Each structure stands twice: as C-alpha cells, then as structure tokens.
Computed example of a mutant assay.
Amino acid sequence: MQGRFVGALSSTGSIYFRQAPRHNGGMDLKRFSDTFGTEEQCVEYLARSRWPHGPVCDKCGSISDAWKTAQPRTWACRACQKQFSVTAGTPMERTHLPLPTWFMAIYLIATSSKGVSAMVISRQLGISYKTAWFLCHRIRQLLADDDCTLKGIVEVDETYIGVKRRPDAKSKRDSDDDQPKGRGGTRKMMALTAVERDGKAKARKGSTHSERTIAGAVFDWLDRDTVLVTDELPAYRWIGKRFPAHLRVNHSRGEWSRRDPLAVACAHTNSVESFNATIKRAISGVWHWFSIKHADRYLRELAVRWNMRRMSRMERFDLVLGSMFARPLSWRALTA
C-alpha cells in the first residue's frame, strides 16, 4: 500500500518521519466513523502506521517475524517466543476505552479549528466527564511542541488572557506560585507568543512581562539569524540587539504597520496578533476557563493546531496518531 511520510515522536522526544497508510484527506466525520468503527479496524490501521515494514518485537527487535494472536492488539514473536502489543508504550496501553473511542477523540481534537472541550467529548462519545477530561489531556500531551526553531521574520508579542480579577483575588484551583501578576491591575495570566511570517507559532505562559521572562522564551525559540519584529515594550530593546535586525511598531501612537525602503521587511505584528486572537477566541468560545497549572499544555495545543492549519483532516489525524509512541501522561502527573 502506498503511503505518505508523517511526523512522529520517538521515545527520546525527537521528531522522525514514518510512512503511514494513505487515506482521502477530505474524510468527513461519517466516513471516519465507518472506517474506524470497530476494534479490528483501529488495530489494523495502528499496526500499519507503527510498523510499515511488518510487526517489530519490542523484546528482541525482530521485524516481520510474528503472528497475530487471538488476544486483541497482541502479536507473538517467533524469535524470542514473547508477546507484544501494538499499543505498548502509548497512552492506549492498558486502556479501558475501546480504540474507536480513542480514534474518534483524536480526530475531533486534531481537526477542530480552535479545540474541543471535555464536556463536548463526553457528550459525543458517551463517556463520563472525568474520563473525557483525562482523555483530552492525554491527547493534548501528544500535541506537544516539536522543538523546532523559528526562523526568517518572526513576530513576538505578549497577551493577557482570562477573566478580570480583583487585585486580591486568588484561584482556589491554582497554587500561589501560579497566581497571575498581570499588568495594570487586571490580574490576568500572561502568554508569550511568537509567530513566523506565514509559518509556525509557539506559545507559553509567563509570570510577568519582565526582560528575563521574555528573553528566556525568545532565545529558546528563535534562531539567532532571525529578523525580530515587536512592539515598543522596553523589554524588547536589549533583546533585539542580539539579532541582526529588530523592527518595532509604536502602537501607542497609532502605528500598526510601517514600510521602510531601507528595512529588510515590513514592520508589523499582524501575524502574532492574529494568533493571539485565536487563543482568546478558543478560551472564550470553547473552554471558557482552564487552570493556570495546565495553561502551557493548552497553549501548545493551540500553537500546534496553528502549525497544522494547511494540512488536511487525515494528515492532522495521522500526525497526532504518530505521536502516540511518545511517553504518555499519567493521571498522577496530571493531578499532582
């Protein structure tokens, strides 16, 4: 069967490429449900995705030297006489949920424009809210950042998200260290964002808009040959000196775009502000609220969804499914 190469995460967390079965990229929800409606269909597709050249024994490493046993999801190796599962080392290992439920949840989360809430997953898949919440976070963990470096012309900005709180108000679900400090008394959580012009995005939460906080994110994300584009926040001034060019726009004076014939690019932050607007619309329209403790996971999900915006629905599904072989998120780690 012909296939395409899609990104996946190795056990060390690095991105590699594997060959996955080819499907129509325009597959709608009904066709997806018909294609992956049974346990056998999901196991077959997961096996072809994980082992494009035949089953690989995780005990001895032999390839295509195993047969399918009567037990679901299990193969037996002829070389070492051991059994191994297609879901071993994935979040679906020892799961009590049917694989079609996992596949449908991955499809809904990966193909939605701004995300899906756990309440919607609970209603559509017929599972409890607690199960849906844990399921969503385990899939959200698969949408982790691929550690790519932003290059070219990169716009950086900070935005404040969440509801407006009184200066002395604290969330009962977040620790004292996670309480937002905000700016101007808003007490909203700050998010640092960076977007390539016509490219990828990155986001993480920040405690304050200090130079140290912003510099840590910028230097981790951006290539040193990048053209940096920001607003006039003072924290960006010395950060911009570390890059070949630093373009700034003064929003306080009503300047939103500037074309300088001697500059390397047009000075504006429209791309990063568009991504920031996507974050706020997702929070207000999909999740309504989330704990600051899990904010980085939500922000990374939105960044990866932005990066997948030009992919077809099945390409998005394959990309998330290929990340299944990374280290899964446990309930203890999620609720610690």
Rank of each mutant, 00 (worst) to 15 (best):
E93R: 11
V86S: 14
E155M: 06
I139V: 09
T95N: 12
E44M: 06
L125V: 07
F36Q: 10
W75P: 03
W51V: 04
K114E: 00
R140W: 05
S112W: 00
G37N: 12
C57F: 07
A110D: 00
K130F: 07
T111L: 05
T101Y: 01
K151D: 01
V86Q: 01
S122Q: 07
T149N: 01
C60V: 08
E40V: 05
V154E: 02
R50I: 06
D147L: 14
R48Y: 07
I121Y: 09
D145H: 04
I127V: 15
C148I: 09
T90H: 07
H96N: 10
T131R: 11
H53I: 11
P98T: 13
F103R: 08
A76N: 12
T38H: 05
T101H: 13
S64C: 14
V120K: 15
Q41R: 04
E39Y: 06
C42E: 04
L108S: 10
R48V: 02
V56S: 13
Y45V: 07
Q124D: 03
C77S: 10
V86M: 08
K130A: 07
I139S: 04
D145Y: 10
Q83N: 10
S112I: 00
T38M: 04
W102D: 12
I153N: 09
A66H: 04
L125W: 03
S112N: 05
A47T: 15
L135N: 01
C148S: 14
A79R: 15
S113T: 11
H96M: 01
R73T: 13
V86R: 05
H96S: 13
A70G: 15
G54F: 04
Y129S: 11
G61Q: 09
R48D: 13
Q83H: 11
L46N: 00
T90I: 15
G61M: 02
P52S: 11
C42W: 05
C60F: 08
K68D: 00
H96I: 05
A66E: 00
S85I: 08
L46G: 02
Y107K: 08
D147Q: 14
P72R: 11
E44T: 08
A110Y: 03
E40D: 15
E39R: 10
P55W: 01
P91G: 12
R138K: 15
G126K: 06
I109Y: 02
K82H: 08
I127C: 07
G54R: 02
R123M: 11
R48E: 14
R140H: 15
C77W: 02
C136V: 08
C42A: 07
V43I: 06
